[in-house]
Design a protein around this nucleic acid. Structure first.
Lengths: 212, 212, 212, 212
DNA sequence: GATGAATGAGGCTTCATTCAT
DNA sequence: AATGAATGAAGCCTCATTCAT
């Protein structure tokens, strides 16, 4: 019966999501305890579990927030580009831009994606994979999966016909995810990291690599 | 008075490393407790910590073993290739072959790379990065870092002069690491995964992407 | 400034008592949290504790309500019977009838009698025993303790002189309470239970068992 | 891989069972936390959960121990009696004797029987009822259910043909369980309680109540 | 009257590690 | 070389209760 749409409540929830992002990015998912997250907000552990019934719920909120924020970068960029090659470059650059401007969010999402396990031991990405299979995204959202961009380019003849779009998509996602990992690693040891430049390198490699 | 070079001792250590690989690959790093690993060998938890003073030591041994096994695939392949392009293809294919033939090892290493934190909170790859900086590998071993292959190709003029070898190296490592992640994810939900075919896709994309 | 005699207030209190009965009967006393009870009424947990300053107070209200309801069955029945044997049968049958027609109430009361402990660890029945000792009931109410019925029968010569009325009373209360336990247990596993028939069995056994 | 049959281990387990009995009898099942039980033994909470993987396992051990102890009183007594009436009296007296000599055990078992709920909310006696239905006891053990004694007496013609053995059994069990409740209640408020005398009262009432 | 928010105590469980044997 | 026992820190979660609005 808790109505969670009060102003205060929304505020607390947002604070908690922010704190969770920071703590996860800093300590990694397994070490990101509810206690640490609540501490960072300056509230009791039990308050966190008052606003999110369970740790999993808080983590889910984090992913929703970060996904939505990322989509705001990527979807318009994709829509603005007309050719498949243009969309490919836009996809890479918007991902890089998001990473550059939302470092903690990206790292946190990466930590969750690789570190989360449900109580029964299921991986985070297993759930996502199955969800996506059950409810395939439509329209521009579908292009959030890079495989769709490669498939489009093959269809329009821009990209090599012998290209495997799914594998190429994995390669690109891997390269992009690697950026988040590099960012976390290098930041931790005090080295600065330039996601934009990395994005340009990817644009060059992947564009040349797939053009017909 | 622990002599670590006895036959049985070495044997036990090897058993434990194998068990650790299996358990980590199956349950993920955070859920891979010493108890579960010891159980799999059929010995008491305390015995595991007798042979490896600490869980971290066991994990370190796992990474050494897996790295060494991977090097046995990659180093000879690199040595056999003469051109930079050849070495690039060899690097990718030998990585893919290792992954195809040592799935548990690969997944376990990925889990560790991704989930491990030292007691002080340092990431696994932070340690590796610093170690590497302190003791740079020499000879063929140096090529285990793909950046070196790209640098070589630029030097020989095979690859584009404007290519950033370090960033290209990150892209390739990311794409390769993504394969391990995909393997873990897809295996978990019962989908078969073909690392060799993925490797060929990477060879095509990266070769075209970097050639002069 | 809490006025506890307003109409709405009385109404809320009654709703809460009803909800408490239902929740306790269904989930057992220890699992019957204030939150669950308030939820069932559709109000906030804090509202429940506004009307009953403490959970103990709510529970006390439940027992009062159920006792009163039971007394409405039992007292008139006792009054209508003239002999001790008649009162004994009336006592058993009215208890059984109450149980048959107020299953949730009976089960809830039993759960409380059995599971409740005050903050200091005192049992529910300890409090009742001491209360009764301090304020002994008078008139027909006194007969709510079956020992009084047996004592009466011994006095009138209907029952065996060597009968111990207190112990016989305990036996009868035990047999009757057992019905509530059986009811809860059997209902939970989907078996129907016939309190009336059980009552008749008790009438037969106890009547023959105590007659002079 | 824990072999739990060491001497020390058996000893600790026995200590823990004893402590659990004492704590449950004193504080009631819901308030009997693992911490309190471990405290009473003078060991860390985690040690208790080392010897019994879970609180439920400890509670199960308690019931097994108490049931076994009770059976040692009851089974031989039943076997020694030849007539149904004799067995009835023996059943009651041996129950009373056990209660008299093992007060804490009896109270604890009663607390568990009425207060235990599984994680899914199942009552203790639901489980027992279903277990018994699945694996009905044989031989003298079958007589541990008083309904069997009444059925026997009806068969031999000692008891009234119109008696319902199951309901009579419930009545007797209820009366006997009531003794445990009374014992707990009266002991708590400092009144002494004589189970043997109570048993005699029950013998008189139930024997007269069921004889043909 | 009503309620959302906050709290701290306590509950069960898991885990890496130590130690005596 | 092996191990059973013990431990304490930490983790997630539930709950009755308080308080300002």
């Amino acid at each position: 019966m808790r109505s969670r749409d009060t102003f205060t409540s929304e505020q607390r929830r947002a604070q908690l999501v922010d704190a969770a992002i920071a703590v996860i990015a800093e300590h990694g998912y397994p070490a990101a305890s509810v206690a640490k997250i609540a501490d960072r907000v300056g509230i009791a552990k039990s308050v966190a579990l008052y606003h999110f019934r369970t740790k999993d719920e808080l983590v889910a909120a984090v992913t929703v927030v970060v996904f939505a924020a990322a989509a705001e970068y990527i979807v318009p960029a994709l829509a603005a580009a007309e050719t498949a090659a243009g969309k490919l470059a836009a996809y890479i650059r918007s991902n890089a831009a998001f990473l550059a401007e939302h470092r903690a969010e990206t790292v946190a999402l990466r930590e969750i994606a690789t570190g989360y396990r449900s109580a029964e031991g299921r991986r985070f990405d297993e759930a996502v994979t199955e969800d996506t299979a059950a409810n395939p995204p439509e329209g521009d959202l579908a292009l959030l999966d890079p495989a769709a961009i490669f498939a489009l380019g093959i269809e329009t003849g821009e990209f090599r016909a012998d290209l495997d779009p799914v594998r190429a998509g994995s390669a690109l996602r891997g390269a992009l995810d690697g950026a988040a990992t590099d960012l976390a690693r290098l930041t931790a040891i005090g080295v600065t990291y330039d996601p934009i430049a990395y994005g340009e390198t990817l644009v060059e490699i992947f564009t040349r690599g797939v053009l017909a």
